[in-house]
């Protein structure tokens, strides 16, 4: 790592460690969900690297959430074991779904992934045992470690920060490895990739499974804090938020989606007072970005620089 990166990251983490102490209770909640949502968008990014925009990511988060919640509650198994299990289960479900889903591409994949996701969500609603139906399941145990009270937001925030940081780092490593290069190849010229021996099917599956695995972990983190897991938390509405975060942030670089999630979530928090206006403002933001800044927020600095240069040139 370069010195500048180390310096920047140390500052960032120092800020994140002190930040919750200056926040009100509901703001601390907000910080926890925002941190979890960063893992949601970054894992979604891995899936989109192959060029497939799935609509099942939110449901995969739910698969992890239900897995961890139900196992820890019904079998009295520690959170520290059910957390990785959440990821494994989401990954396995993704692997099973990849067989039918990857027979489709583009638009059909989008619709197919939505249908598969709804099928899973309806299962949670229909099978009251064990899932709990529309109301879901409550009284999910919170993590136990020494004498730390994880019902309090600050300790839970630190836990989330550590888990999310590790996961995001792993996803970063994957994207910047040979595998990331190959995923890029699969996306942009699948036939050329095949012609040098890349099995494009396997790589699409890999991205889908690993992306689902990490979002499953995010799901578990979320419901062990709230204490309740319900189908509504992972519906298409939440999926649309994920899409908006990624599109508004930009999907060309690793950081784009993170910027999108952070900026829009803060905007959303500010708009808390004007509840009725929130969907309209979100919609308008999305349309604005698609029309005027298709590269997303990440491309903003470059855009501004270009503008300045153009102005200077026309001035001289």
């Amino acid at each position: 790592m370069r010195i500048r990166t180390v310096f920047f990251l140390s500052l960032l983490y120092a800020a994140l460690i002190v930040l919750p102490h200056f926040l009100k209770y509901h703001q601390q909640d907000f910080l926890i969900f925002l941190t979890i949502n960063i893992l949601v968008v970054v894992s979604y990014r891995l899936v989109t690297l192959t060029g497939e925009w799935s609509l099942i990511h939110a449901v995969m988060m739910g698969v992890g959430a239900y897995t961890s919640a139900l196992i820890s509650k019904n079998f009295d198994i520690s959170f520290w074991i059910t957390l990785p299990l959440a990821g494994v289960m989401a990954g396995l479900v993704a692997l099973l779904l990849s067989y039918p889903l990857f027979r489709m591409t583009q638009f059909y994949f989008l619709i197919g992934s939505f249908a598969a996701g709804e099928a899973i969500r309806l299962t949670w609603i229909q099978f009251i045992k064990p899932f709990g139906g529309t109301g879901g399941t409550s009284a999910i145990p919170s993590p136990e470690l020494m004498n730390i009270d994880f019902l309090e937001p600050i300790p839970y925030f630190y836990l989330v920060l550590i888990v999310v940081s590790i996961c995001v780092y792993l996803l970063y490593r994957i994207e910047n490895s040979r595998i990331g290069l190959t995923l890029h190849a699969v996306h942009w010229k699948g036939v050329l990739a095949e012609s040098v021996g890349v099995n494009t099917w396997n790589y699409r599956t890999l991205a889908f499974v690993i992306g689902s695995l990490f979002v499953g972990i995010a799901g578990a983190l979320k419901v062990h804090y709230i204490g309740t897991v319900a189908p509504k938390q992972f519906d298409i509405g939440f999926m649309v938020f994920i899409l908006i975060w990624v599109i508004v942030g930009g999907y060309r670089t690793f950081y784009g989606a993170i910027i999108g999630a952070v900026v829009l979530s803060i905007l959303d928090e500010i708009l808390r007072g004007v509840e009725q206006l929130r969907p309209a403002i979100y919609g308008a933001t999305l349309i604005f970005f698609i029309l005027y800044l298709p590269g997303g927020l990440e491309s903003l600095p470059q855009k501004i620089r270009q503008k300045f240069r153009a102005n200077r040139e026309s001035a001289t």
Partner: peptide
């Protein structure tokens, strides 16, 4: 160079 350089996810990470 995929044939000689392809790798698994653990090794990559």
């Amino acid at each position: 160079t995929h044939k000689q350089a392809h790798t698994n996810i653990i090794a990559a990470v």
